[in-house]
Amino acid sequence: MLEIKNLHANAGDEPILRGIDLEIAAGEVHAVMGPNGSGKSTLSNILAGRPGYSVTHGEVLYAGQDLTQLEPEERAREGIFLAFQYPVEIPGVSNNYFLKASVNAVRAHRGEPELDAMEFLALSQEKMKAVDMPADLMNRSINEGFSGGEKKRNEVLQMLLLEPQLSILDETDSGLDIDALRVVAQGVNSLRSPDRAMLVITHYQRLLDYIVPDRVHVLSAGRIVRSGGKDLALELEEKGYGWIEEASA
């Protein structure tokens, strides 16, 4: 589903990624771990198409097509979803209005009829239950005054509504207590299926107790320095990133 070949990329003018190779097949969950500054967020931003990040070398193929040629909204319509590390607060725009516009943009792209207000209400209520989100958050402005946990739940709610083919979770565990983490992970796991893939980016192993990956990759200084099964995460937790960095130096 996703093929990253020898990817070099800049954040602004600064080279961050220095040759990444990564292949994720449908049905798989991959985790990318690494210390701060290793390039984890740059990778997720490149995949989602955030302005200010550029590919300088290599390629990124999504379902066989060159992902870098697509605008952010085109990527989203094609089934890519980035759960933001820092979801943006947008005063004056209700969460409900935003999510309905988003769902209908994807449906229109798929050639499906748009949902009316009642249909969307039914759908959103069902999905909100799955992430244990209070009903009033739908009528509030997007993420405005939401707690850290509420923001992350809102990200997972969007993911459940849009049913993406490829989900990228950027440090979704940061700022979550254990109960919220469990709820968020449950929501994510409910989307796992043989035709979807996920890329879970995290600093800590903790999240991977709940979203169990098929593969774990360790990113250091813009390269994947080690890949393995889910046990690699446990080993990292025990020995720290220094162990990998020394071994790969």
Partner: peptide, 9 residues
């Protein structure tokens, strides 16, 4: 970017 990343043109 947030809105665009949610499929909105």
């Amino acid at each position: 970017f947030y809105l665009q990343s949610r499929a909105i043109g």
